[in-house]
Write a protein that binds this DNA or RNA. Structure first.
Lengths: 247, 247
DNA sequence: CGCTAATTTGACCTGGATCAACTACGGTGG
DNA sequence: CCACCGTAGTTGATCCAGGTCAAATTAGCG
């Protein structure tokens, strides 16, 4: 297929290539997956708690987050998702959603029927293994979040989150030069870290005052890389990226 | 070896049966896995951060926990593991351990070579799918812990943890009648919830005073089931157990 | 230019941490 | 059988990180 425009599933291929090598045959199989693309407004649910999805969704553009709301309207965000992520792989093996998935920004999402995914993973155990690996890495990220929530100060926690989001984007070519998109509000950051938006604001100002970061127009710039890593005690190995950026 | 005593891998089979049906052939394949059994003292590392395991480990008896220690000796426990769990399935696909695994009690662990596990999952995709499913469920449990740490009070968090540990054990036949083993110290509970041992103690006393639980000799008795579930806002669906206990 | 959402600031409060004893208890050796 | 010891549990006093509430101020956007 000698098309010279990019294939819609390119983000997925790029993500897989960031951790492994895929054969031409595998690439072709992925590119021939039947997809239904859909555009979403910011802050819309893509899948909701209690749903029984019949499709997996793949982020093509924009940011999504997983979240859950408990009584008194308290929201907890569990993860942020960018192009190439398949945030509800779990629906392949667990019928009922135990949390919701929503856009943070305007986003484009590709829906792939479960049947096609099952077929793909059956025909290509290597791809199945990579998907499994992906959920294992994600579990590792959850553990790191637990650690941050349980044992780090608000300052260190946010520093850690910024490092993580930078690395995740850098690994798939969405960030470089210590600069990356961060299209989320301080309220979202609070819901992700378990802090109040007021406190998030104060911590960010402290980081700015220390010359560690700037955060404007949905762009994070890490001004003092070493200091930020050190405050966060950040060790990227839990992300299990194949390539590490040069420090 | 035509022994009529229970097979050492029975806990694993029981765990799989708690979520799915396994064929005789699959059962035979599991029972013929080459295992090396090892007994551990309490509070010993089974696998340590940075290790590159060549075996998966399966808990046969006793309690294990995953944890990580950061500077200043702060410890965070990520999960508790009981008979039938394979806490380091991830080493099958991710070479380097990003956390440690230790016993809480005296424990017996079966080590299964990665090669044998890869062989098993290749020959029986159904088993591979169940293992994958298991990591997905575990990720869901991590999310619930994140929610508890971020958005619940200490009281509700501990109540939630007690519910979870009861349900997990009940599902594999290790608990009933609102009574289950809980062979961990209050310090361990603190490291799991991100609380200090002092505060854990105070919360537990409050629960006792309210007649909700008793906790003595490493046994948890839930005296007021409904109240505990309600305080925790506990909804067991995130555990994705096949059978639910009758309330 | 006007509206709404997001950020920022200030004042005050509280859940849970920390520190420091002290008690209970299961082993262990004499 | 008892004295001793180390671990786990309990209690009290004090402190502070981060929450809450409310009111600006600013930024983005149609």
């Amino acid at each position: 297929m000698a098309s010279n425009i990019t294939h819609p599933l390119l983000p997925l291929i790029r993500k897989l290539e960031s951790i492994t090598t895929i054969s031409d045959e595998e690439r072709a199989a992925i590119e021939s997956l039947p997809v239904r693309m859909q555009a979403f407004q910011p802050r819309q649910d893509v899948v909701s708690e209690g749903d029984k999805p019949s499709h997996c969704c793949l982020v093509l553009e924009g940011w999504l987050c997983r979240y859950k709301i408990i009584s008194a309207g308290k929201r907890q965000i569990f993860s942020f998702h960018i192009a190439g992520d398949i945030p509800d792989l779990q629906s392949l093996h667990i019928p009922v959603m135990d949390h919701s998935l929503a856009t943070l920004t305007a986003a484009t999402v590709a829906f792939i029927p479960h049947a096609a995914m099952h077929d793909l993973t059956t025909r290509f155990p290597n791809i199945a293994a990579k998907f499994w690996r992906d959920t294992l890495v994600e579990a590792g990220i959850f553990r790191e979040w637990i650690l941050c929530m349980g044992r780090r100060s608000a300052f260190d926690h946010l520093a850690h989150l910024f490092c993580e989001l930078y690395f995740k984007q850098e690994a798939v070519g969405l960030a470089d030069s210590y600069r990356c998109p961060l299209p989320v509000t301080q309220l979202d950051l609070g819901d992700a870290t378990g802090l109040s938006n007021v406190h998030v604001n104060r911590v960010i100002q402290e980081m700015r005052a220390k010359g560690m970061i700037t955060l404007r127009k949905n762009t994070l710039v890490i001004e003092a890389w070493d200091e930020l890593l050190q405050a966060a005690e950040f060790d990227a190995s839990y992300l299990h990226l194949r390539k590490r950026i040069a420090l």
